[in-house]
Amino acid sequence: MNEVIKSILSAQFFYSVLRVTTPVLFAALGALLSDVAGVINIALEGLMLMSAFWGVMVSAWTGSAWIGLLAGVASAVLLSLALAYFHLNLKTDLILAGIALNMFASGSTVFLLYLFSGDKGSSSSVKSYVLPNVDIPGIKNIPILGDILSGHHVLTYIAFLSVFVVQYLIYKTPLGLRMRAVGENPNAAQSVGISVKRIKYTSLVLSGLMAGLGGAFLSMGYVSWFARDMTNGRGFIGLAAQALGGKSAYGSMWGALLFGAAEATSYTLQAIRIPSEFTNMLPFIFTIIALIIYARAKIMQIKKIREKQTSHEEVGL
């Protein structure tokens, strides 16, 4: 047990929290961007998978990780557009469309992986490229803090920067105002001539963009290959993280960090030879518990407001 506590308190542990948080954070921001406009993007899982696959493939073909990243993100955005088209134009049920696209992503990536590499499990036989890690000059040399914050994958930095960008976008820009209006009362938005459809399209594209970055991180940073269904529920966990964080990007970030911590802990436990099957389920159990606590807290909050008001009454206020 001592071993575990020691490793959890190490700089390396915090470094790895940030690392494993990255894809979940991208997914959570993606969930937020669509949720604000009133769309539940359950396809995040598939969008990430798509991007992870095309990122690897295109980087292998072109020899450039950056072009790979571009292709990965583009594939996620494209699939996100498909979700928008089916939901908004063909009036497909949003959740079922999301499930279908997740299936599509899972099926098509395996199908193509086999076609391109002759392997159904992973792309390890394909020579692909990864995006670089970045040292931050000033911070790098500070003890402990430098170990935690510096030397991360470039997409990790982009993920945390995106938190501020997304928050600004939603709460300060005209687009953000329109997205919030569409999400809260689409009729109100429509009544002033805003095209609800166009706003929802836009937010789904932005959502796809985030998911794409998250997916690319998985196969071009977290590891250096694509594996069948490698997202492993991270898109769904991102949805849960956003649900915990409410309609704020900061909230989504804290939610994502919580799961990052759970996942990093589960790796630490593996190091002391607790079976990986057992530790692998921890982030998911953690999500469920967090969802319960959150839902309960919301109910308690309502109760408390009412009790407080009633007690005022009795005192004669």
Binding site: K172, L177, R180, A181, A188, A189, Q190, V192, G193
Partner: peptide
């Protein structure tokens, strides 16, 4: 057809918002 959580001004200018900082804000 109003958005309850927004202010009166935000509801009225919605879709034709005046901006600063090159249209970003």
């Amino acid at each position: 057809m109003l958005v309850p959580s927004l202010t009166v001004a935000e509801n009225i200018v919605l879709g034709m918002e005046p901006t600063k900082a090159w249209g970003t804000t």
